[in-house]
Simulated assay, not measured.
Amino acid sequence: MTNLRTEKRKRKKKRKGLKIFLLVLLVIILLIVGYLGFAYWKTTSTFNKIHTPISGKENTGVALDKKQPFSVLILGVDEREGDKGRSDTLIAATVNGKTNKIQMLSVPRDTKTLIPGYDSNPHKINAAYAYGGVKMADATATQFLNGIPFNYYIKINMEGFRDLVDAVGGIEVTNEKEGLSLKGKSFKKGKISLNGEDALTYVRIRKSDSEGDFGRQKRQQQVMSAIAEKALSTGIIWRFDGILNAIGDNIETDFTMTDITRIAKNYRGALSNVENLQVKGEGGRDSGGPWYFNVSDSERARLHDELEKNLD
């Protein structure tokens, strides 16, 4: 009889332990489902906020689910209250999901070029955004590159750049130069960790760099690649709320949420194979006028061919 009672107590304890385990499991499942539901809602609302197609431009979207190559115009704009600003950074990027290769071409902001739709005089390429927003900057970049079209664009507020770096938990880059400094902040040579404020300073350095604007362009490309890799890394999902807040406050694009999902799935391998292209030219003043970076027609043709090759 005693053995029977003991056995019953054991079974009750087992059932009680099983109920506790199932309850904990249920709570975990509910938390995950609730989290994913919130994540989906948050992501959707963020992309609804930043999705801004270029007015009057024909839809040039590509078959991202089939790894079709595509091009992106990346504009880094210094926008302040009451000032539309100019495109401090202009990068033409091509992405090939079949060869897993990304090209990033930084066009110097002082590059002399015509601005379609404004007037018949040459201007600095960074003025295109100030004169006609993303639409005019897009048309000007295509004209400068002898007809390379842009399927998409991303406009980043450079002041909010630091928010994005902080949102992914900081980044690591390799500084290849000694003596880089700006406003009392210096960066040692080698691998360095950057928070948002440091990253913004790092990409703005120009005068203490022997390569001047070209060195700054390389660092901008370097930091953007580091942010992208960190944002797509496993475990970063726990920071997704901060990332989406930073994106929603500082970015405009004609990418949709579906586009980004397909790119993350089908083009991820290209992130580790980035080719940085450089515009060759000469700086100078025309008859005592403003300083320009002058690019020859043959150089523009060369850049066109390089980008076209990666676009198949």
Rank of each mutant, 00 (worst) to 15 (best):
L307K: 01
Y153W: 04
T111M: 07
Y267W: 08
G215W: 07
K16E: 05
V72K: 00
G76R: 03
S287R: 15
A167C: 08
N266E: 13
N151D: 06
V274A: 06
F70T: 01
E178F: 04
Q222A: 07
F144C: 09
K14R: 13
G269P: 13
T44A: 09
L307I: 05
I171L: 00
D209V: 05
L182R: 09
L194E: 05
G196E: 00
I102P: 00
E275C: 08
I54P: 04
R9D: 07
E211G: 15
G284S: 12
I102V: 11
R15T: 05
E282I: 13
Y202Q: 02
K98V: 06
I91W: 07
K309M: 09
R15V: 12
V27R: 07
G147S: 03
R239I: 01
K230G: 04
F214D: 05
K8V: 12
G179Q: 11
K12E: 13
Q221C: 09
T113H: 11
N146I: 10
G37P: 07
R268V: 12
K280N: 15
I247W: 04
Y292I: 09
P149I: 02
T89Y: 12
G61T: 15
N126P: 04
P53Y: 08
T111V: 09
D312N: 14
D305A: 15
T60S: 09
K66P: 00
K189D: 08
D259V: 01
M224W: 02
I148R: 02
K14P: 01
P290I: 11
G61L: 05
A93P: 04
V274Y: 04
I192N: 02
F47C: 06
V168D: 02
I260D: 03
T43I: 12
I29E: 12
K230N: 01
V168S: 10
E81A: 11
G190V: 13
G281K: 10
D213R: 07
D249R: 15
F293E: 14
A246K: 01
G248T: 00
D286K: 12
K19S: 11
G76I: 04
S296W: 11
K16T: 11
I148Y: 02
K57T: 13
K98H: 06
R15L: 15
G288F: 13
V107L: 11
L232K: 09
V24N: 05
P53Q: 07
T140N: 03
I263C: 10
S120H: 11
